[in-house]
Computed example of a mutant assay.
Amino acid sequence: MTQPKAIIFDLGNVLVDWNPDYLFRKIITDEERRKFFLTNICNLHWNELQDGGRTIAEGTAELLAQYPEWEEQIRAYYDRWTEMFNGPIEGTVEIFRQLKAQDGYKFYALTNWSAELFPIALELFPFFHWFDGRVVSGEEGMRKPDPAFFQLLLDRFGLQANEVLFIDDNLRNVTAAEGIGMDSIRFENPQQLQAALAQRGIVVNL
């Protein structure tokens, strides 16, 4: 297998552990009510609209108009957003660190992330600065799994799809990347990633 020129990382749940439940288990202690809220109100589809460029104010206002009885919880979603993180996924950060020490690779981030929140993430997670470049969905007005979003990164940094390795935890994003010719790994955990890299002749140690 040909060695890639560039390795592209997703960020959430690849390099950092993110889950709204980490916050809302503190706010909504009843499990059934919490599941209802995160499935039907502040759900992942709604969050992705902000990742795609809609402002947090617009997204919040939409839900407040529909669910005024949930105002406290809706506002908490972004007011206390940093509490949705359980820190770095240390094994993946170590893999990234070792890959950075090897010659021959460029590193890019391709992430679905609100443009308003990403500057905070850069402060929270210093290793986000290790990339040679990054493409943030909220800044571009498009997001994974749109093939055009992948192509934007390739064009911006002068890459071809067959020259890169893409790592993401979401199957739909991996499928989209493979659809335009990117070798891709669906991330499950650092040990699985280490093994998948080894299959490609890329050696790291955990």
Rank of each mutant, 00 (worst) to 15 (best):
P4G: 06
K5C: 04
I7M: 10
L15V: 05
V16T: 06
D17R: 05
W18C: 02
P20S: 00
Y22D: 01
L23Q: 06
R25I: 00
I27L: 14
I28M: 04
R34D: 03
L38K: 00
T39S: 15
E48K: 12
L49C: 13
G52F: 02
G53L: 03
G53A: 10
I56R: 11
E58F: 05
E58M: 06
E62N: 06
E71T: 08
I74R: 03
Y77H: 11
Y78F: 15
W81V: 03
E83K: 00
F85T: 00
N86Y: 07
G87K: 00
E90S: 12
E90N: 10
G91I: 01
V93I: 14
E94K: 12
F96H: 11
F96S: 01
R97S: 14
L99S: 11
Y105F: 15
K106L: 12
Y108F: 15
S114I: 00
E116K: 00
F118W: 11
F118E: 09
F118H: 09
P119V: 00
I120E: 14
L122N: 08
F125S: 07
W130K: 03
D132H: 12
D146N: 15
D146T: 04
F149W: 10
L152A: 08
L152G: 11
L154D: 13
L154N: 10
G158D: 15
A161I: 12
E163I: 05
L165R: 05
A177E: 13
G179Y: 11
F187M: 06
Q191T: 07
Q191P: 01
Q194P: 08
A196M: 11
V203C: 08
